[in-house]
C-alpha cells in the first residue's frame, strides 16, 4: 500500500526510509497491543479485558 501518487509532481510521495521505519514499527506495536487486548485466548487475559472486549465489539468467547 505504498501509494506514490501519480497525479502531479507536488503530490508524488517519496517514501523515505525513516518514514517507512515509523510506519512498520508503529503498525507492529499497534497490532501486538490490539492482539493482546482483543484476541489473546488465555483465560486470565480474557477475563481482565472482558468488558472492554464486549464494549469495543471484539469477537469474544
Amino acid at each position: 500500500m505504498t501509494n506514490p501518487q501519480m497525479t502531479t509532481a507536488e503530490t508524488s510521495v517519496q517514501v523515505s526510509a525513516g518514514k517507512m521505519t515509523s510506519v512498520i514499527v508503529s503498525a507492529m506495536i499497534g497490532f501486538f497491543l490490539i492482539y493482546g487486548v482483543g484476541f489473546a485466548q488465555p483465560n486470565a487475559l480474557h477475563n481482565a479485558a472482558h468488558d472492554s472486549r464486549h464494549s469495543l465489539v471484539f469477537p469474544c468467547h
Partner: peptide
C-alpha cells in the same frame, strides 16, 4: 484494557497517517 486498546488503535491509525504523508 481500554487504554491499551486506545494506544494500539492510535498506533495503527498513526501508521496509516504517516504512510499517507
Amino acid at each position: 484494557s481500554n487504554v491499551i486498546a486506545g494506544v494500539g488503535f492510535a498506533l495503527l491509525l498513526g501508521a496509516a497517517m504517516t504512510m499517507r504523508g
